[in-house]
Amino acid sequence: MNPRSKLMSIDDVVGRLESGMTIGIGGWGPRRKPMALVRAILRSDLTDLTIVSWGGADVGLLADAGKIRKLVYAFVSLDSIPLEPLFVRARQEGTIPEIAEWDEGMFFTGLKAAAERMPFLPMRGGLGSDVMVNNPDLKTVQSPYDDGETFVAVPALRLDAALVHMNRADAHGNATYLGPDPYFDDLFCMAADQAFVSCEQVVDTAGLTVDTPVQRVLLNRMMVSGVVETPNGAHFTTCTPDYERDEAFQRHYAAATADPEQWAAFKERFLSGDEEAYQAAVADFAKEATR
């Protein structure tokens, strides 16, 4: 007997989310982000979300669409364009009601605590910095041993749902990353009550390891609630080796955000339809660029 299938559609995933939820988004900055699922949230009537992300355009787009009530992040960047323009605007206009800027390592520790079902884990990172000042809910804890040292008691970043994007998955939720870095997608899934994996390609279980070592199967099905095939679904972030970041598109995106009319036109062209329409518009954009 095979384990159950968790194959679903993009809309099925969004249907499992609710306004007010805490949602973790995997990947790292502009790398292997579950953008097809993010785009689906943009189209949905979901609101008042707490977004937990080492952020890239996922954060910028969700902020611009007014979806975020609280943002937990350590940075938001597009790398080749250091500052994410929509995030910068949202911060400078004060449109995200609640801001939790943490240190990168604290963010990692918070996910680990959630994955281990611990209320907190101690670490040094954060001590002495304004992360402790700007997040007055963060507390410290003293070592019970002879050293008596003080640490940050990093609270668990428990998630209602995690969204991650992988290169390959089977119908049951086992999934591989084929690029250089797993990022923290397994931790996001283990920190969440429900985890949804979008992927470039659904293959049968044997197919997961036919051309790559078994160590690349980062996600086990016991961590995963749903699987959805979204080819080019990380666009315009990286999904190495399937594709690299679409730098031309990213430049177009960043430039468009600077002007209200151009930004309206960008949204009309790329973000007004479903994922299929998005991919068609992107293919059209690429063709234009090569003409």
Partner: peptide, 21 residues
């Protein structure tokens, strides 16, 4: 002002952890 900055930069990144480790 952190609550509503005149210029938002990258975010703290790893600087707090780096500097005490």
């Amino acid at each position: 002002d952190f609550a509503k900055p005149t210029r938002q930069l990258l975010g703290s990144r790893g600087a707090p952890s780096n500097t005490v480790n």
